[in-house]
């Protein structure tokens, strides 16, 4: 039974989130209070009780929606916000066909986008969050949406999902930031959401031209390496959840991206080193 509802539009994607409980909906409504409200959702997400009893006794959330993973484990009610965010991401990852999706973060300056992709733990999300408070516009830390016609990057600035050490780091550097509740011991560790900075929400429908692609690696001596176009292609097909589904449109969009956007791998040990490398490469290449 889903009795509470919240609607939000993030970039081009419109969501409806329904819940058997009021609290996750109230949390979402507060965190997303400055975002547009869509009339017609692209996707519906449901936070449902595992059984009628589990709505009240040790409340446990089962996710429902247009696109779901059949064996997704239920989450306790205290992690309702995480459940909603995971389900929203899943709809886009599995269902979106209007753009080429890259699992990446992005920030914007002067109408041009810096796109960062890499494995979990590479720091792409934390880097985007940090740069978003240092003069760049935060465009998203989960998906970058590449237009199939003109190659522009559309923003998808969901809540920034900070994990473990990144929580303290961002609380120290984003002093004016608005944070969600701290969720301890989730399947992804400790999680706390951060509302993107004001300009990210104000320009939520403003695309940018991809100008630099970085593959960051956290935990190594600072270094910059060139990456060949065929390696970039292979890495980006792995980073895209809908490349195969898009067929020819995916091929033409991705090959145009690779031929026009310079790419580098960067190693760094902390945010200061990363910001210095990013600014240096941006000045040289973007």
């Amino acid at each position: 039974m889903s009795v509470h509802e919240f609607r939000v539009k993030v970039g081009p994607v419109a969501f409806r989130i329904c819940s058997a409980w009021k609290r996750p909906i109230d949390q979402l409504a507060d965190l997303y209070r400055d975002y547009p409200t869509p009339e017609i959702p692209d996707y519906s997400v449901r936070l449902e009780a595992r059984s009628p009893f589990r709505r009240f006794i040790r409340p446990s959330i089962t996710l429902g929606g247009d696109y779901m993973l059949p064996d997704a484990a239920p989450l306790p009610l205290a992690q309702g916000l995480l459940a909603a965010e995971m389900a929203m991401n899943l709809q886009v990852a599995l269902g979106w066909r209007r753009h080429l999706l890259l699992h990446a973060s992005a920030v914007e300056k002067d109408g041009k986008a810096l796109i960062m992709t890499g494995a979990s733990g590479s720091g792409k999300s934390t880097l985007a969050a940090m740069l978003g408070h240092k003069g760049w516009r935060f465009m998203g830390d989960e998906f970058v949406l590449i237009d199939l016609v003109n190659g522009e990057a559309a923003p998808f600035p969901r809540m920034i999902s900070l994990k473990n050490e990144a929580i303290g780091a961002m609380q120290a550097s984003a002093l004016d930031g608005r944070f969600g509740p701290l969720m301890i011991g989730t399947p992804k560790g400790d999680i706390r959401h951060l509302v993107p900075a004001r300009d990210a929400i104000a320009q939520i429908a403003v695309s940018a031209t991809p100008a630099l692609l970085l593959f960051p690696s956290f935990g190594y001596e600072p270094a910059v390496r060139e990456i060949g176009a065929s390696e970039v292609f292979m890495r980006l097909t792995q980073a895209s959840t809908n490349y195969v589904a898009l067929g020819e449109a995916g091929f033409t969009t991705l090959t145009r991206f690779i031929k026009t956007v310079p790419a580098r791998a960067i190693d760094y040990r902390d945010g200061i080193e990363a910001a210095a490398l990013v600014n240096q490469l941006w000045d040289e290449l973007a």
Binding site: G228, A229, S230, F233, F251, T255, I258, K259
Partner: peptide, 9 residues
Amino acid sequence: VEPLDAMTL
């Protein structure tokens, strides 16, 4: 057919 560096797509 899209030639890249050493490889062709």
